[in-house]
Amino acid sequence: MRRRQRADDGCSSAVASRSSMHYPVLLRVEEYLDLAPRYGSEVIRVGSLVLFASHTPWAYYARPNRGNASPPRRKDLVRLRRVCKHRELPLRIEWIAELSPELENIAAAFGLRIARHPLLILTEDEFVERSRSVGVRMLDPDDGQLIESRAVVHVVFDPTMPAAAGVVERDARLLRLDHAEVNYAHQRARSGRTVTGVASVAGVGVVATGSYNPIGEVAEIVGVGTLPTYRHQGLGSDVVHQLCEDAFSHGVQLIALVAEDEGVARMYQRLGFRRIGTCMSAQDCSF
């Protein structure tokens, strides 16, 4: 595996004109993001958008229709809202800003709440060597800590959790995990569609986790989080580093990652990730 050390190159926004150096890789990531939810959803075409009606324990979203040359318009959002209400689905749209630049203004004028997140990629040549904590490892599909890792994710991404949430909150969520989510997590792990790594502490169990979802030679890292009481120890970075190493060793050539904000993006850049654009999301918070 050939790797090189590299410095943090900042996270300036990319411009994805067809002549841009980022345009081909943005299209590659867009293709992946279009394929990823199709494995667990009904695909519903809504004008220039595609809605993924999830068959899984968690909800999906709508995206621009890759097969439609026309950009999204307001009437598509009107239709999307109607379909989502009929099916009792959340109205959420995700897209790459540089490939669908017109959608932000349309969604904002439609009253949706907009969020912007740095989009980063990593290739094997850019992967930065580093040591990791001893408790970081990949999980087999039937490892008992796989479900413990799901409880960590629930704690980390629950905005109602206390700032000092830790093992007590994790174990409480573990007891309340839905059987459908548990079964689906094992199903995806056994099929190889989700591969999970964790950081564990002796006598405590899983305190940080993350996963990658491979499709062909592209994968996305998702669900990275550390229990608040164990943050600022580099455990999340260690887990991501382990995930990247494992993905490259299994034939992945390009890893994509959507960071929460610019500060988180800078952390990933220390592992070799580079910023190529911005992922957008828009959602209707009224229902």
Rank of each mutant, 00 (worst) to 15 (best):
F157K: 10
D125K: 12
R193M: 04
Q233F: 10
V156A: 12
Y212H: 07
A256W: 03
P162F: 01
R137F: 03
D178E: 12
R92Q: 13
V153L: 06
P118Q: 05
S100T: 15
S70K: 15
P159T: 00
E220M: 08
Q242I: 00
I114E: 11
H55R: 14
H241K: 07
G216V: 02
Y23C: 14
A53Y: 05
E104W: 03
G272Y: 05
V264M: 08
P64L: 07
D76L: 05
A259P: 00
Y60V: 01
S133T: 07
A259W: 08
R2W: 08
A219V: 00
D178C: 08
Q5R: 15
G216K: 05
R28G: 02
G40T: 08
C244E: 02
R231T: 14
R274A: 06
Q283K: 09
P37R: 02
V258C: 11
D178Q: 09
N213E: 14
G236R: 11
E102Y: 05
R74C: 01
R274S: 13
C279N: 09
A62F: 04
D34R: 14
G277M: 04
Y268V: 06
G277P: 06
S200P: 00
V15M: 10
R113W: 06
V50G: 00
D171Y: 04
K75T: 14
F273Y: 15
R270D: 14
E129Y: 14
K75R: 12
A202P: 07
L120V: 13
K85D: 12
L254G: 00
V264L: 06
H186Y: 01
R173W: 02
E124K: 04
V195H: 02
V153N: 04
P71S: 14
A151M: 00
L120R: 13
A108L: 13
S149L: 01
L257T: 12
E30C: 09
I221S: 05
R173Y: 06
S211N: 05
P72G: 07
R82C: 11
T229L: 13
V156G: 02
M21Q: 14
C11S: 15
E98Y: 07
T226S: 12
V198P: 05
V204F: 11
R87D: 03
Y212M: 05
A151S: 03
A53N: 10
G47S: 05
P162N: 03
N65C: 14
N183S: 06
T209C: 08
G197E: 01
C11I: 15
E126F: 09
A265C: 10
A14Q: 09
L27D: 08
V153P: 03
R92W: 05
V46G: 08
S12R: 15
P214M: 01
A36G: 04
D284V: 04
G236Y: 10
L139V: 02
T226R: 04
E126A: 15
A202Q: 09
P101V: 09
E30P: 01
L235G: 11
L89P: 09
A247P: 06
E129F: 10
T194C: 02
G205E: 04
F287I: 11
E129V: 13
R4F: 15
V128P: 10
A202V: 08
M280C: 15
